[in-house]
Design a protein around this nucleic acid. Sequence first.
DNA 1: GAGTGTGAACTTATTCACAGCT
DNA 2: AGCTGTGAATAAGTTCACACTC
Lengths: 258, 258
Amino acid sequence: MATGRTHRPATRSRGIPEATVARLPLYLRALTALSERSVPTVSSEELAAAAGVNSAKLRKDFSYLGSYGTRGVGYDVEYLVYQISRELGLTQDWPIVMVGIGNLGAALANYGGFASRGFRVAALIDADPSMVGKPVAGMPVQFIDDLERIVAENGVSIGVIATPAGAAQQVCDRLVAAGVTSILNFAPTVLSVPDGVDVRKVDLSIELQILAFHEQRKAGEETGGEAILPPVVRDAAAVTPAEGRKGPDGDMPAVMPA
Amino acid sequence: MATGRTHRPATRSRGIPEATVARLPLYLRALTALSERSVPTVSSEELAAAAGVNSAKLRKDFSYLGSYGTRGVGYDVEYLVYQISRELGLTQDWPIVMVGIGNLGAALANYGGFASRGFRVAALIDADPSMVGKPVAGMPVQFIDDLERIVAENGVSIGVIATPAGAAQQVCDRLVAAGVTSILNFAPTVLSVPDGVDVRKVDLSIELQILAFHEQRKAGEETGGEAILPPVVRDAAAVTPAEGRKGPDGDMPAVMPA
DNA sequence: GAGTGTGAACTTATTCACAGCT
DNA sequence: AGCTGTGAATAAGTTCACACTC
């Protein structure tokens, strides 16, 4: 997240904590499901369970939006759906462009949840001329040379990058120059953007690595903590010995080629 | 994240903060890039820039792993690659299964970064009999009835769910029953799992909604904060009036059908 | 009675700033 | 002189617990 703006805007702004903002879509999804089942009201306890958080957190989160509940009763489902939608900006229409229509890009374009909530795919863009014109998710892929025109004509402010890592920064620069100010990045690279542009990243392999960390911990705990199991070295190529280090445990294995 | 275990294990454990763990893969990626360019050492400042964080945070993060740097010089790239890999558990091999080989599942299976770092796709599994046997990313899709056998035979502890939302919880339950203790969930649902099982979710539409929130803020700020612009209502269907509410601004529009 | 809304306590994360090593 | 490692200060996020309202 590369939000510039350190100082808050002059007007006394109701600052909704970032952590809360990140949970609003979760609440919204749970509420939408209730709405479809025509449930009229819901308590913080019930809604929290549906959203997978605890009720105190949920109430605190909602308190930043205003007092939308009724004591002794709970929350009006439809009313809350509306208020959260509005807060998230989903009562308006957001045209987005997707750049990089490979395997992943195509899959994302086909993914329904995309278009569902206020988001509309304005264009699919790729740099491969052989892709251009091919229909993906019911719309023809456009050539990257037209990126600037497409962004301008559609008033696009949100871009999705699903290119290979090598192309991502370049695409990002063009998007930003064309006026895009929010980017969802699926390429495994750190993007650098000017102040005022938001970047969120979704990274497959990072998520797996975090899971592996915890998984490893579990394995260690089973044997009574501080496991003796020496890590199975998978790839010890090209690691310098470097003596005198003081890590909490495990120096590099001796079998290591310099 | 549904980590059970409230109490720390008996042995005085070096508790690495969750926020730090989440950044280690980032550092690792930056270090790997340096390693490929045969850069021998790097300062916290340089590495932080490459990873997109600030240097104080990076040094603090590394301090939880041990003292792996050299004052006045910086960090030995190869040595750090090894230490972080070990800490993340990437020096061992993690067989994973992917369940749900639709558009997204197939795209993920084809995604290289998956297999690269210690992770090995042991099986692709789908519930659609017509998919079974078809090669995806060079391996035949297997039928969901074999899930338990596959998990057991391969010692799988990490599962990836890329099914439609409706099937996700059921698949999750089967994975957990079969012995999987870490799950990466791409389905737009909250999964409930027993204590001791970790779930991480990747959710497209949530990320977009967070971006929309910030995007809306920017639009408001341009006109001098506390924008007068009335939110364009896209879908005001079925919202109850509910008078007497006290949100910070904007009650529901009057045009609303009860 | 039931359940929200919220100060206050607590926990986790980030940033500062500088002592200490090379 | 340069750069790490880390206590101390600050900020952000979570949980507690209960007054208050319906």
